[in-house]
Amino acid sequence: MAGSQDTVAGPGASGGHATGTDRRERLRRFWKSDFVRSSPFWLIPFLLMGLAVYGGIIWNFLISLTDYEGFLQPPDYSNLDFEMYAQALADPAVFSTGRNTFVLLVAFTTITLILGIFLAILIDSDIRQKNTVQTIYLLPFALSFVVTAQFWLWMYNFQNGLVNTVLGLFGLGPYNWIGNPELVLGAIIFALIWQFSGYCMVVFLAGLQSIPNDQFEAAKVDGASIIKTYWRVIIPQLKSASVSAAVVLMIFALKIFTFLYAMFGTYRPPKGTDVLATLMVREAFNLQNWAYAAAIATILLAMGLAVVAPYLYYQYRARAL
């Protein structure tokens, strides 16, 4: 986009002595610039995307400011206020689902990252059947939530589930993974970690393989232990990989609705796993509280943005964006 200066300089920037021919000349050059000539290729997708995504977000936000509910009245945009947000902040259901969402987000992302980096280091250290092992770890990521949710539900079965059977070998349990509200969120998080740690591993592995062997050798010559080599030399270089993996993981954590719906077949998952997304769907599609649901959606979006914003800022600072 080297030619884009024409567009930005604009007529306003031309000093006081702009003549007619001058202006025509600039218009002609603008018209022939790369910016304009390339526009059919990027402008259309840009507009479609902008309308579908950002238009949707803005419209959702507007609806959340109305009192829209039921089917009879269209939303009234003449009287906007933050009543729904006030109501949401005072609603214990929003608080508890928000807390569950947050716990899920943080615990799932952190543990998956740590596990991913650990697996990547193991695989990177030239084990046998490296490619096979890598595929085995990555495979769960390729499975749909619909599949993984259903078989984790079977694995968590109290009587004949695999989890309790295996723990039973060590004399532990049995635990009521899904029925006990104190365990169920952990059980869900564990299932998600199982599904995504492979992906995380692949991201880190790519980062690890771009680090030249010299650094390992240099560290060795300097007498650094293996742990110290990784901790001081290697892991700091994986920063950008970990940031991008973290963002993808957080986005998956926010999409937990699919997993819960596939698992329980209802918009109302058991106590302890109710998240903002399920609450939003119930408010909108069971009860037609459209404005209230839109407010919850906006809160969820704000949570998502709060998570992603530091990453964007970091990338921007690192001149990667």
């Binding site: 050059r29 921007y316 001149r319």
Partner: peptide, 19 residues
């Protein structure tokens, strides 16, 4: 070719626009 389609506009880079 007047000087006011200046090099200065070069600094209006993608990064600036983003910011």
């Amino acid at each position: 070719m007047t000087e006011d389609t200046s090099i200065g506009s070069d600094t209006v880079s993608r990064r600036r626009v983003l910011g």
